[in-house]
Structures are given as structure tokens and as C-alpha cells.
Write a protein that binds this DNA or RNA. Structure first.
Lengths: 114, 114
DNA sequence: ACAGGACATCGACGGGCGTCGATGTCTGAA
DNA sequence: TTCAGACATCGACGCCCGTCGATGTCCTGT
């Protein structure tokens, strides 16, 4: 606590992000803040069909199928990936809204200095 | 591993993010993937002078000064915040390049489906 | 009906993270 | 020189996260 008569700086005006906003966006960031999950999203997004099945994603990593499945579940729960089962295989596709939300977040005035 | 003669889908072409890229960007995302740190960055960015001292940031949270100092250190180590000591007080300012890097990442073709 | 494969779930392990109280370091003022 | 305040660092605690092997579930040929 600083003495009000001896302020060290201007008292933080402007419209900052609310605590609720931060609590809401943080899980999305946290889901993407992992190198494996970033590559998973990138692999799916860069696929020619815009989607990918788990078997091919497994081959792209030196990780267990259980681990890849776990990461896909995290991304799906966070709203980054869509999940669709067709026959024996499961296909994941990226949700552009989720990525756009993150992109716009770091261009919003609340996070971009003047 | 899927039988090559019985492919489940097209074999993941396109230019995806490399493992090195993912390993390099993930720490930046991880530093921002916390509600307290998001609010810290937002508070500093929305300040009238574009910077803020620790004493004022402390008052905005129900957290210990040690915890706020820890979060600021994480953000500084990740390259999100600049640190400058003037007299008794320490001022933090956001590095727009870091935020712009994240924003552009989620607009890059490697992460944006066609 | 049966077998085999694709994918999810479970339980467990080690390590890292967020938070705290206590203490250290530095600066400016008396 | 001494003191008080601003901020950083330290050590510790509980909890969550990434990874694994093992097992379960569902679908499809045979």
C-alpha cells in the first residue's frame, strides 16, 4: 500500500480486463500453452481437408496413444477442437472462432498499449 | 499405426508448425495462461502512462506482494513485460512485440484452417 | 458370434506451478 | 548512520499437469 500523498505513479485508469474475463479466457490460453497441443492444432489446421484422425496424429509424435488422446480431450474441452466419430475413426477439426478469439484478445485495447 | 493400404484419411500435408517452433512459442503462451497474469498485463497496458509500479498492482489483487512479484517475474522472463527501476519504485511496461507475436500466431496459415 | 483394431478411460508416478510467510537487498530520508 | 519502506528472493506446501502402461468400449469384418 502506497501513501496517497506520495503516489509513485498515476493510479491505473483506463478500462482493464475484468477478473471474470480473465478467469474465462485463461483456460483457453492454458489449453494452447503446450508444445504438443500447439503442434496438434497446427497439424489439424494445415491438413488438406481441415480435419485429421487420431491414428495419423499419433504417428507424428513420439508419444503414447493415451497421451495424444489426453491432449485432444483437453483441446476439445477448451473448445479449440471439434470431435466427430465416423465409423471406426475419430476426426478432429479446429474451431476457427476459438483461435480468432485469442488473436483478437491480444489486439484489444485492454491489452495493447497506446 | 494405420495400415497404409487402408488409410483413414489424407496423410496430413500442408506446412504445419515445426516442433522447434512449438517449443519456442509455448513458454510465451504459458506465461499468459493465468488469470492473474492476464489481469496484470491488462492493468499495465491500460494505464495512462503505459506503465505501472508494483505497489499499485498489489492493491488490485487479494494476493501477497510476494505472489505478485513472482507473477511479474514470470512475465518479465517470458519477454512480455519490461522492467525499469526508478528510485525506490519499479515500473513494468508491456512489450507490444510479444503480444503481437501471439496475435499473429493465431492468424498464421499454420494455425488457421482454409 | 467372434476376433481385431481404433480410440477413450483409469490409476499412478514425477515434476512443475501458484501461493504463502519469512527474510534479504536496496534506496531515500531523518 | 540509522531507519523505514518498496520490492525481490527463499523455502515450503498443496495441487494440477504431462506421461505412461493397462484396461475398457465401440465398431467392423469374417
Amino acid at each position: 500500500m502506497s501513501d496517497p500523498g506520495l503516489a509513485c505513479c498515476t493510479p491505473l485508469s483506463g478500462t482493464a480486463m475484468s477478473a471474470d474475463q480473465a478467469e474465462q479466457v485463461a483456460p483457453l490460453l492454458k489449453a494452447l500453452a503446450d508444445p504438443v497441443r500447439l503442434r496438434l492444432v497446427s497439424l489439424i489446421a494445415s491438413s488438406t481437408t481441415g480435419e485429421a484422425c487420431v491414428c495419423d496424429l499419433n504417428d507424428a509424435f513420439d508419444l503414447t496413444q493415451a497421451t495424444i488422446s489426453h491432449h485432444l480431450k483437453v483441446l476439445h474441452s477448451a473448445g479449440v477442437l471439434d470431435r466427430e466419430k465416423r465409423g471406426v475413426w475419430v476426426y478432429y477439426a479446429v474451431r476457427p472462432e476459438a483461435l480468432a478469439a485469442v488473436a483478437s484478445l491480444f489486439q484489444a485495447p485492454a491489452l495493447t498499449p497506446a
